[in-house]
Protein backbone atom coordinates (compact mmCIF):
# COMPACT_ATOMS: atom_id res chain seq x y z
CA UNK A 1 0.00 0.00 0.00
CA UNK A 2 1.25 3.41 -0.81
CA UNK A 3 1.78 5.96 1.90
CA UNK A 4 -0.62 8.27 0.17
CA UNK A 5 -2.97 10.56 2.08
CA UNK A 6 -5.31 10.40 -0.90
CA UNK A 7 -5.72 6.63 -0.56
CA UNK A 8 -5.76 6.35 3.21
CA UNK A 9 -8.55 8.46 4.66
CA UNK A 10 -6.78 8.59 8.02
CA UNK A 11 -3.24 9.41 6.90
CA UNK A 12 -2.58 13.14 7.20
CA UNK A 13 -0.33 15.20 5.00
CA UNK A 14 2.79 16.05 6.92
CA UNK A 15 3.07 19.78 7.29
CA UNK A 16 5.24 22.46 8.82
CA UNK A 17 4.12 25.47 10.78
CA UNK A 18 5.54 28.49 8.94
CA UNK A 19 4.18 31.18 11.18
CA UNK A 20 2.19 31.55 14.37
CA UNK A 21 0.14 34.72 14.85
CA UNK A 22 -1.22 35.54 18.27
CA UNK A 23 -4.69 36.87 17.54
CA UNK A 24 -6.16 37.32 20.99
CA UNK A 25 -5.52 36.12 24.47
CA UNK A 26 -6.88 32.64 23.58
CA UNK A 27 -6.78 32.46 19.77
CA UNK A 28 -3.71 31.74 17.67
CA UNK A 29 -3.46 31.49 13.90
CA UNK A 30 -1.21 28.88 12.30
CA UNK A 31 0.11 29.27 8.76
CA UNK A 32 1.04 25.87 7.48
CA UNK A 33 2.60 24.38 4.35
CA UNK A 34 2.58 20.74 3.31
CA UNK A 35 6.08 19.28 3.41
CA UNK A 36 5.89 17.70 -0.02
CA UNK A 37 6.02 20.61 -2.52
CA UNK A 38 4.05 18.58 -5.03
CA UNK A 39 1.28 17.88 -2.53
CA UNK A 40 1.19 21.59 -1.72
CA UNK A 41 1.04 22.49 -5.41
CA UNK A 42 -1.77 20.04 -6.06
CA UNK A 43 -3.78 20.85 -2.95
CA UNK A 44 -7.27 22.07 -3.89
CA UNK A 45 -10.10 23.15 -1.65
CA UNK A 46 -13.16 25.37 -1.65
CA UNK A 47 -14.05 28.11 0.85
CA UNK A 48 -15.70 26.63 3.93
CA UNK A 49 -14.02 23.24 3.82
CA UNK A 50 -12.34 22.07 6.97
CA UNK A 51 -9.24 20.13 7.95
CA UNK A 52 -8.20 17.91 10.82
CA UNK A 53 -4.99 19.11 12.44
CA UNK A 54 -2.90 16.45 14.15
CA UNK A 55 -0.49 16.87 16.97
CA UNK A 56 0.89 13.34 17.08
CA UNK A 57 0.69 11.96 20.57
CA UNK A 58 -2.31 14.12 21.40
CA UNK A 59 -4.78 13.64 18.58
CA UNK A 60 -6.75 15.52 15.99
CA UNK A 61 -9.27 18.29 15.93
CA UNK A 62 -11.28 20.03 13.21
CA UNK A 63 -10.69 23.60 12.01
CA UNK A 64 -11.82 25.50 8.95
CA UNK A 65 -9.17 26.45 6.42
CA UNK A 66 -9.57 30.19 6.78
CA UNK A 67 -7.19 31.30 4.05
CA UNK A 68 -8.87 31.46 0.62
CA UNK A 69 -8.08 29.05 -2.23
CA UNK A 70 -6.95 32.10 -4.18
CA UNK A 71 -3.96 32.55 -1.87
CA UNK A 72 -2.09 29.28 -1.72
CA UNK A 73 1.29 30.27 -0.24
CA UNK A 74 0.08 28.62 2.97
CA UNK A 75 -3.04 27.13 4.60
CA UNK A 76 -4.26 29.07 7.56
CA UNK A 77 -6.08 27.76 10.63
CA UNK A 78 -7.18 29.79 13.65
CA UNK A 79 -7.45 27.92 16.90
CA UNK A 80 -9.16 28.88 20.11
CA UNK A 81 -7.64 27.24 23.18
CA UNK A 82 -10.34 25.12 24.84
CA UNK A 83 -9.22 21.52 25.34
CA UNK A 84 -6.30 19.10 25.29
CA UNK A 85 -5.45 19.36 21.60
CA UNK A 86 -5.87 23.11 21.23
CA UNK A 87 -3.77 23.70 24.33
CA UNK A 88 -0.97 21.63 22.81
CA UNK A 89 -1.34 23.37 19.44
CA UNK A 90 -0.92 26.71 21.16
CA UNK A 91 2.49 25.59 22.41
CA UNK A 92 3.78 24.87 18.91
CA UNK A 93 6.18 27.22 17.15
CA UNK A 94 7.44 27.96 13.68
CA UNK A 95 9.10 24.89 12.23
CA UNK A 96 7.12 22.37 14.25
CA UNK A 97 5.60 19.38 12.46
CA UNK A 98 1.91 18.66 12.41
CA UNK A 99 -0.47 16.55 10.34
CA UNK A 100 -3.20 17.96 8.12
CA UNK A 101 -6.14 15.90 6.83
CA UNK A 102 -7.90 18.16 4.37
CA UNK A 103 -10.00 19.19 2.66
CA UNK A 104 -13.02 17.65 4.39
CA UNK A 105 -16.72 18.47 4.21
CA UNK A 106 -18.67 20.71 1.90
CA UNK A 107 -18.14 24.38 1.12
CA UNK A 108 -20.04 27.62 0.90
CA UNK A 109 -22.14 27.78 -2.28
CA UNK A 110 -19.83 30.43 -3.71
CA UNK A 111 -20.83 29.61 -7.30
CA UNK A 112 -24.54 30.05 -6.60
CA UNK A 113 -23.79 33.29 -4.78
CA UNK A 114 -22.34 34.94 -7.91
CA UNK A 115 -24.09 38.18 -8.75
CA UNK A 116 -25.62 38.45 -5.30
CA UNK A 117 -25.09 40.88 -2.46
CA UNK A 118 -23.46 39.19 0.48
CA UNK A 119 -23.89 40.10 4.13
CA UNK A 120 -21.32 38.51 6.46
CA UNK A 121 -22.16 38.38 10.15
CA UNK A 122 -19.36 36.97 12.27
CA UNK A 123 -18.96 36.67 16.03
CA UNK A 124 -15.66 35.89 17.77
CA UNK A 125 -13.79 32.89 16.38
CA UNK A 126 -16.80 32.48 14.04
CA UNK A 127 -15.10 35.06 11.84
CA UNK A 128 -12.62 32.38 10.72
CA UNK A 129 -14.89 30.50 8.29
CA UNK A 130 -16.26 33.79 6.97
CA UNK A 131 -12.76 35.06 6.29
CA UNK A 132 -12.02 32.40 3.67
CA UNK A 133 -15.18 33.22 1.73
CA UNK A 134 -14.77 36.97 2.17
CA UNK A 135 -11.22 36.94 0.83
CA UNK A 136 -12.21 34.60 -1.98
CA UNK A 137 -14.91 37.06 -3.02
CA UNK A 138 -12.59 40.04 -2.73
CA UNK A 139 -10.15 38.17 -4.97
CA UNK A 140 -12.99 37.58 -7.47
CA UNK A 141 -14.62 40.92 -6.75
CA UNK A 142 -16.46 41.40 -10.03
CA UNK A 143 -18.38 38.15 -9.61
CA UNK A 144 -20.29 39.42 -6.57
CA UNK A 145 -22.57 42.34 -5.70
CA UNK A 146 -22.30 44.51 -2.58
CA UNK A 147 -20.27 42.97 0.22
CA UNK A 148 -21.09 43.93 3.80
CA UNK A 149 -19.29 42.67 6.87
CA UNK A 150 -20.48 42.91 10.45
CA UNK A 151 -17.88 41.50 12.80
CA UNK A 152 -18.32 41.51 16.54
CA UNK A 153 -16.43 40.29 19.58
CA UNK A 154 -16.74 40.56 23.31
CA UNK A 155 -14.17 43.37 23.60
CA UNK A 156 -11.64 45.06 21.31
CA UNK A 157 -8.87 42.73 22.49
CA UNK A 158 -11.00 39.71 21.55
CA UNK A 159 -11.06 40.66 17.84
CA UNK A 160 -9.12 38.20 15.74
CA UNK A 161 -7.56 39.31 12.44
CA UNK A 162 -7.11 42.81 13.90
CA UNK A 163 -4.19 43.44 11.53
CA UNK A 164 -6.54 43.00 8.56
CA UNK A 165 -9.35 45.16 9.85
CA UNK A 166 -7.87 48.55 8.82
CA UNK A 167 -7.68 47.34 5.22
CA UNK A 168 -11.25 46.00 5.27
CA UNK A 169 -12.50 49.25 6.80
CA UNK A 170 -10.64 51.30 4.21
CA UNK A 171 -11.72 49.32 1.17
CA UNK A 172 -14.20 51.04 -1.11
CA UNK A 173 -15.53 47.76 -2.53
CA UNK A 174 -16.95 46.51 0.76
CA UNK A 175 -18.49 48.07 3.83
CA UNK A 176 -17.32 46.96 7.23
CA UNK A 177 -18.90 47.49 10.63
CA UNK A 178 -17.18 46.38 13.82
CA UNK A 179 -18.87 46.03 17.16
CA UNK A 180 -18.00 44.86 20.66
CA UNK A 181 -20.16 43.96 23.61
CA UNK A 182 -17.96 45.94 25.95
CA UNK A 183 -16.15 49.01 24.60
CA UNK A 184 -12.97 50.70 25.77
CA UNK A 185 -12.26 54.44 25.74
CA UNK A 186 -10.21 54.19 22.53
CA UNK A 187 -12.71 51.99 20.66
CA UNK A 188 -13.89 53.98 17.68
CA UNK A 189 -16.54 51.56 16.44
CA UNK A 190 -19.91 50.28 17.53
CA UNK A 191 -20.73 48.99 20.99
CA UNK A 192 -23.66 46.59 21.03
CA UNK A 193 -24.75 43.02 20.46
CA UNK A 194 -24.38 41.75 16.91
CA UNK A 195 -28.10 41.14 16.21
CA UNK A 196 -28.98 44.66 17.37
CA UNK A 197 -26.26 46.28 15.30
CA UNK A 198 -27.36 44.19 12.34
CA UNK A 199 -30.91 45.51 12.63
CA UNK A 200 -29.55 49.07 12.77
CA UNK A 201 -27.51 48.43 9.63
CA UNK A 202 -30.73 47.26 7.99
CA UNK A 203 -29.26 45.37 5.00
CA UNK A 204 -31.73 44.71 2.19
CA UNK A 205 -32.70 41.09 1.61
CA UNK A 206 -33.15 41.92 -2.08
CA UNK A 207 -30.89 39.63 -4.16
CA UNK A 208 -28.86 39.00 -1.00
CA UNK A 209 -27.39 36.13 0.94
CA UNK A 210 -26.41 36.35 4.60
CA UNK A 211 -23.57 34.20 5.89
CA UNK A 212 -23.25 33.93 9.64
CA UNK A 213 -21.06 32.10 12.11
CA UNK A 214 -20.36 32.51 15.79
CA UNK A 215 -21.40 31.19 19.17
CA UNK A 216 -24.73 29.29 19.11
CA UNK A 217 -26.61 31.98 21.02
CA UNK A 218 -25.37 34.69 18.65
CA UNK A 219 -26.38 32.62 15.62
CA UNK A 220 -29.82 32.10 17.08
CA UNK A 221 -30.50 35.82 17.55
CA UNK A 222 -28.76 36.78 14.31
CA UNK A 223 -31.10 34.48 12.41
CA UNK A 224 -34.06 36.07 14.19
CA UNK A 225 -32.75 39.52 13.21
CA UNK A 226 -32.28 38.40 9.60
CA UNK A 227 -35.83 37.08 9.54
CA UNK A 228 -37.04 40.43 10.88
CA UNK A 229 -35.16 42.15 8.07
CA UNK A 230 -36.98 40.00 5.53
CA UNK A 231 -34.33 37.37 4.78
CA UNK A 232 -35.83 33.99 3.88
CA UNK A 233 -34.48 30.69 5.26
CA UNK A 234 -32.84 29.92 1.90
CA UNK A 235 -30.93 33.22 2.04
CA UNK A 236 -29.27 32.44 5.36
CA UNK A 237 -26.17 30.30 5.43
CA UNK A 238 -24.28 29.09 8.47
CA UNK A 239 -21.60 26.60 9.30
CA UNK A 240 -21.82 24.10 12.14
CA UNK A 241 -19.39 22.70 14.60
CA UNK A 242 -19.63 19.21 16.11
CA UNK A 243 -17.29 16.80 17.78
CA UNK A 244 -15.68 14.84 14.96
CA UNK A 245 -13.18 12.04 14.76
CA UNK A 246 -12.98 10.48 11.30
CA UNK A 247 -14.08 13.50 9.29
CA UNK A 248 -15.40 11.26 6.53
CA UNK A 249 -18.86 10.27 7.68
CA UNK A 250 -18.06 6.91 9.26
CA UNK A 251 -17.28 7.15 12.96
CA UNK A 252 -20.81 8.20 13.90
CA UNK A 253 -20.54 11.07 16.34
CA UNK A 254 -21.33 14.20 14.30
CA UNK A 255 -24.57 12.91 12.80
CA UNK A 256 -27.82 14.77 13.05
CA UNK A 257 -30.26 12.09 11.99
CA UNK A 258 -28.95 10.71 8.71
CA UNK A 259 -26.77 13.74 7.94
CA UNK A 260 -23.12 13.85 8.92
CA UNK A 261 -21.86 17.34 9.69
CA UNK A 262 -18.33 16.35 8.66
CA UNK A 263 -19.46 15.19 5.25
CA UNK A 264 -22.83 16.77 4.41
CA UNK A 265 -21.80 19.97 6.23
CA UNK A 266 -20.41 21.92 7.90
CA UNK A 267 -22.15 24.49 5.69
CA UNK A 268 -25.95 24.48 5.71
CA UNK A 269 -28.61 26.97 4.70
CA UNK A 270 -31.07 27.72 7.43
CA UNK A 271 -33.72 26.08 5.24
CA UNK A 272 -31.65 22.86 5.30
CA UNK A 273 -31.10 23.12 9.03
CA UNK A 274 -34.80 23.34 9.63
CA UNK A 275 -35.26 20.07 7.79
CA UNK A 276 -32.82 18.32 10.12
CA UNK A 277 -33.92 16.69 13.35
CA UNK A 278 -33.50 18.98 16.31
CA UNK A 279 -30.28 17.63 17.79
CA UNK A 280 -27.73 20.41 17.58
Amino acid sequence: MSENPGTNLYLPFMATIQEVVRETQNIKTFRVTLNDPEQMRNFRFAPGQVGQLSVFGVGESTFVINSPPTRMEYLQFSVMRVGELTTRLHKLRKGDQIGVRAPLGNSFPFEDMKGKNVVFVGGGIGMAPLRTLLLYMLDNRTDYGDITLLYGARSPSDMAFSYELPDWLARKDMSTVLTVDNGTPDWAHKVGLIPNVLKEMNPSPENSVAVTCGPPIMIKFTIQALHALGFQDEQIITTLEKRMKCGVGICGRCNIGSKYVCQDGPVFTYAQLRELPNEL
Binding site: F56, G57, V58, G59, E60, K245, C246, I250, C251, G252
Partner: peptide
Protein backbone atom coordinates in the same frame (compact mmCIF):
# COMPACT_ATOMS: atom_id res chain seq x y z
CA UNK B 1 -22.42 -1.22 15.33
CA UNK B 2 -19.40 0.31 13.69
CA UNK B 3 -18.83 3.66 15.40
CA UNK B 4 -15.30 4.24 16.55
CA UNK B 5 -12.96 6.51 18.39
CA UNK B 6 -9.49 7.60 17.34
CA UNK B 7 -6.96 8.44 20.00
CA UNK B 8 -3.22 8.87 20.18
CA UNK B 9 -1.38 6.81 22.73
CA UNK B 10 2.29 7.55 23.18
CA UNK B 11 5.22 7.06 25.47
CA UNK B 12 8.21 9.31 25.19
CA UNK B 13 8.59 10.47 21.62
CA UNK B 14 6.75 7.65 19.94
CA UNK B 15 3.35 6.12 19.81
CA UNK B 16 0.39 4.97 17.80
CA UNK B 17 -2.84 6.47 16.56
Amino acid sequence: CYCFNITDESKGGQGVR
